[in-house]
Design a protein around this nucleic acid. Structure first.
Lengths: 187, 187
DNA sequence: TCTCGATGTAGACACCGTCTACTGCCGTTT
DNA sequence: AAACGGCAGTAGACGGTGTCTACATCGAGA
């Protein structure tokens, strides 16, 4: 049982997020869910975006964790596995994924969150650098290539989860689209 | 001078959107901007999402218009130009672009909007089909390939406009990332 | 025992979207 | 000319929201 009130509020918010989506995660709903009065959360967070930032930070940590337990032998395999794990995370935690990139809801410049996106980019850059050292796509700037590849994955997730491809493409066609993307980048 | 009240409200909303972003486009602000009472918009739209859907519809029409005036000779050139025009639109109209894919704000299933995303995908599919007929990347399902390519562009725009790459990448590195994406897909 | 900080409460305020009752006004019909 | 009906707009209310402030409680350290 969690006793730290800050942690308790984050847990309530996370549960609410997964159950009912981003819209439902209001300060007052979180408070109600946690069994406290509507003003209590402001004793522990400076505002809504501060609380949601804490939730999103946990999301980024989990994304990172999942991407690091990908089994792989070659650098190329590790890069491919990380790409797939990124999509798996997005499709498996749609509300959390949405929150993590809704900079109108979180405070992306906060000390806890300011580094996460750069860290993600750096993570991809390192994997790409390793794959390049093994002979793949040498010559390209790994940082720029990482941004391009990450964006391709991110766009597919975003377009699938949000309106974009929802009605226009069947579910298995989206899997196929991911395969095409990975094939295009990773040969 | 526009007299149709519906058109007047859409114009006010569009101006507000460009000036102050998605957050500012509330029914009451739109009404104030248009010089009417706070309840007036509901005489012409069933709700906020209905009005914003009309704004987004105009956005999709403008995106389509801009993509069609791309000068090109070969199918390959036309495809490349359309990709660049998509990014130009996103970076040139960030608030509108955001609104167009915020399905929590618009009613993506409305009669006016339900077809736009499919139409966009079809547009890309057709361009890709033409390029394939000219020998490029034959064999791949044009529909799936279109989704993959569109998503790559979309993700780059989204990641750049929203939090993602904002602090992690310089502006010219984003241009470079677009070049890498186009290079990767279009050779 | 007293004090003080951490925690929580309750009410207020200004927004928001939406609903409803009411008011003009203008063209058409009778 | 008079009556009508629908279109456009108004004004107030309701419940919801984030945030602020004044107040209460309670436990650990001086």
């Amino acid at each position: 049982m969690v006793t730290d009130p800050r942690q308790r509020l984050i847990a309530s918010a996370t549960a609410l997020l997964a159950d009912e989506g981003v819209e439902a995660v209001t300060l007052r709903r979180i408070a109600r869910e946690a069994g406290v009065s509507h003003g209590a959360p402001l004793r522990h967070f400076t505002g809504r975006s501060d609380l949601l930032s804490a939730v999103a930070t946990a999301g980024f940590a989990e994304l990172r964790r999942q991407s690091e337990e990908v089994p792989a032998v070659t650098p190329h395999e590790r890069l491919l596995g990380t790409c797939r794990s990124y999509m798996d995370f997005a499709l498996g935690n749609p509300a959390m994924f949405e929150l993590m990139f809704r900079h109108d809801l979180i405070d992306a410049d906060s000390p806890e969150l300011s580094g996460t996106n750069s860290a993600l980019l750096d993570h991809f850059s390192r994997l790409i650098g390793d794959a390049q050292a093994a002979g793949w796509r040498t010559g390209a700037d790994p940082r720029v290539l990482a941004a391009s590849l990450w964006a391709a994955l991110h766009g597919l997730a975003e377009l699938w989860l949000r309106g974009g491809l929802g009605k226009a493409l069947r579910s298995d066609e989206v899997d196929a689209a991911l395969d095409v993307t990975l094939q295009t980048y990773l040969g």
